[in-house]
Computed example of a mutant assay.
Amino acid sequence: MIQKVKLTYDQIMSKFQVNKPWDTIIIFVLNILLTIPVFLIVHQNTIDVNWFWHIDRILIFILIVVVIQLVLRAMRKIILISIFLYLVTLFVGTVFGGYGFKSVFEDYEYMLYFMSDNPNPQDIIISKMLPFPNKSKVLDAIEYDNPKVRSFAIMATTKHFRKSKDDFREYATIIQCFAVFKEINSRWNYVSDPKNKDYIATATESLEYLSGDCDDHSILMAACVRSIGGTPRLIHTDGHIYPEILIGTKKDFEAVNYLIKQVLFVNESKDKVVNYHIDERGQIWLNLDYTAHYPGGPFMSEEILGALTLN
């Protein structure tokens, strides 16, 4: 009886066994298919040490290939089942809006572009910063729930990047905030404060003529960004204030970096670096200053003294 059960099992397993040399070819192809999503997960959750040519990422990729290859060779008798389960998993993700074939392709495309483009990180340590100047006045001036502010922001989203928002739905809010950035920065007129006085204009006041100094611009930008669901913050230096927008994780930044350079601000960012800050929680922020022609443009070189985040 025991021998009969064993024989039946062997017969079943033999149905899923692939003859040589096809088993080796299939194992290698399946290895690459499995390595890509595994590598993306590892890549997005490990610190980038910024080695030359991203050697650390290459070594990680090779290590994953070797490990998966050994596992697949040990499982060669059920190789067809492995392929079937892999494809079914991606198919289900594609049909029901989860992680599917398109997600794997896009993540890999974003990651490769990010590695070749080499954006420029500039870390800041929030815990060591000074109190934000005129904090209460600035917060009151950021009238993100004012109908005029929201109407202006909505107008900008209908004017810029509407198709891109539909094509990249996962980052629709950030794309709409970039539309606000484009509208404000393309029309902003810098006007100094009264002599010997730090004048803080409200968002609606600056909105009337799209004019003012750096803190007026920052307040208006922050108000508009927050009015449509973005998370802005203001950075204070010794002689300047500028706005930033929260992008999120490293994975999010890889996608946004691709969108800036290849879709939304192609001409403005051509041959230029996307600069960013990383806060103490590992979250990534991009510069939206009036001096920048694309999100993540060059920072002012002054020392950062404080930050005011609008959650």
Rank of each mutant, 00 (worst) to 15 (best):
Gly212Trp: 13
Lys135Leu: 10
Ile126Asn: 01
Asp198Glu: 15
Gly97Lys: 03
Trp22Arg: 03
Leu246Val: 13
Leu207Pro: 00
Ile260Cys: 04
Asn45Tyr: 08
Lys270Trp: 03
Tyr199Cys: 07
Thr46Asn: 05
Gly239Val: 07
Tyr294Leu: 03
Leu234Tyr: 02
Gln262Pro: 00
Ile200Cys: 03
Met111Pro: 06
Pro131Val: 04
Asp117Gly: 01
Cys177Trp: 00
Thr202Phe: 13
Met115Lys: 09
Asp10Ile: 06
Phe39Cys: 02
Phe61Trp: 14
Met111Phe: 12
Phe96Pro: 02
Thr237Arg: 00
Ser151Ala: 14
Ile68Phe: 03
Thr204Asn: 04
Val18Phe: 04
Val66His: 10
Met1Trp: 06
Ile27Cys: 07
Gly229Thr: 01
Ala292Thr: 13
Cys224His: 06
Thr94Pro: 02
Asp166Met: 13
Ile55Cys: 11
Val42Glu: 03
His293Gly: 09
Asp279Asn: 03
Ile260Glu: 12
Val71Glu: 09
Gln69Met: 13
Pro121Glu: 11
Tyr190Glu: 12
Arg162His: 06
Val49Tyr: 13
Thr8Asp: 14
Asp10Leu: 06
Asn50Gln: 13
Ala223Pro: 01
Val65Phe: 09
Glu302Ser: 04
Pro298Ser: 00
Ser14Glu: 12
Met300Asn: 15
Lys270Leu: 14
Gln17Thr: 15
Asn134Phe: 15
Gln44Ala: 12
Trp51Ser: 14
Glu143Lys: 11
Phe101Asn: 00
Met300Ser: 15
Val191Ala: 15
Ile126Glu: 14
Gln44Ile: 04
Arg281Tyr: 06
Thr249Cys: 05
Pro295Ile: 09
Ile68Ala: 03
Arg169Leu: 12
Ala172Cys: 02
Asp279Gln: 00
Phe84Met: 11
Asn196Ser: 10
Ile2Tyr: 14
Lys197Cys: 06
Leu246Ile: 03
Ile58Asp: 11
Met1Ala: 14
Gly230Glu: 03
Val49Gly: 09
Asn45Pro: 02
Leu85Tyr: 05
Asn267Ser: 09
Asn146Glu: 10
Ala153Met: 01
Asn134Ser: 12
